[in-house]
Computed example of a mutant assay.
Amino acid sequence: MLFMGEDEEKDKCEICETYRYKEGSKKIALKRMRYFPLKPRLQKLFMSSKTASLMKWHAEERPDDGTFRHPADPQACKEFDKQSPSFASDVRNVRLGLAADGFNPYGRMSVAHSTWPVVLIVYNLPPWLCMKQCFLFISVLIDCPKGPGNKIDVYL
């Protein structure tokens, strides 16, 4: 449960009855999520004429010979195009891939804490750019004592 808007003052989850804060006098959240807005970063891709033209590479210049060269080449991406023809018809629509994995920021495995960055990859760009650091966007940073596990969908 996200404690935002009308739920901002609540101290307990309505679904699982878990408390929001650690026990004690200070209000320290058990789990935290930091969200980094995506819209301004996507707008910057279209502000430059060079990157704006490269955002159409996947549709206009990508070879379609059955060889896997790009993250958007697998059958799953082609199947998505068949299921969503209105989305696939406009080459300027932004295609994103999502990757998430946890790590221990303190470097010791004995410390019970994990941080989970959720990274978005722009599939519109050519393969020599889509995996460059400047085009990988951290969208969400999940900070909690233990990983989100199967409940990562709540954060997404």
Rank of each mutant, 00 (worst) to 15 (best):
Y19F: 13
C144W: 10
N104D: 13
T67D: 10
L54I: 00
S53F: 01
P127A: 01
Q133Y: 01
L54A: 07
P37N: 11
M4N: 03
I142T: 01
G24T: 07
G5T: 02
Q75S: 13
V122T: 12
I15E: 15
G97L: 04
S139P: 00
K10C: 04
C13D: 09
S48L: 11
L30H: 12
E23H: 08
V154P: 00
K82D: 11
L45A: 06
I142V: 12
C144S: 15
A100L: 11
P145C: 08
S25L: 08
K10S: 03
L136F: 03
Q43W: 00
K56W: 00
D73Q: 01
W128M: 01
G97E: 04
H58M: 02
M1N: 07
E79M: 07
F68Y: 05
K151C: 04
K50A: 09
H113R: 10
M4S: 04
V94F: 03
Q43T: 13
C144R: 06
R62A: 11
M1S: 09
S25G: 05
C16L: 11
N93F: 04
K10E: 10
W57M: 07
T115A: 12
F135A: 04
R34V: 13
D81Q: 12
M131T: 10
G147R: 09
G97R: 01
E14P: 11
I15P: 00
F68G: 02
F137H: 15
M4I: 14
P85K: 15
C130E: 00
Y21Q: 08
Y123D: 03
R62H: 08
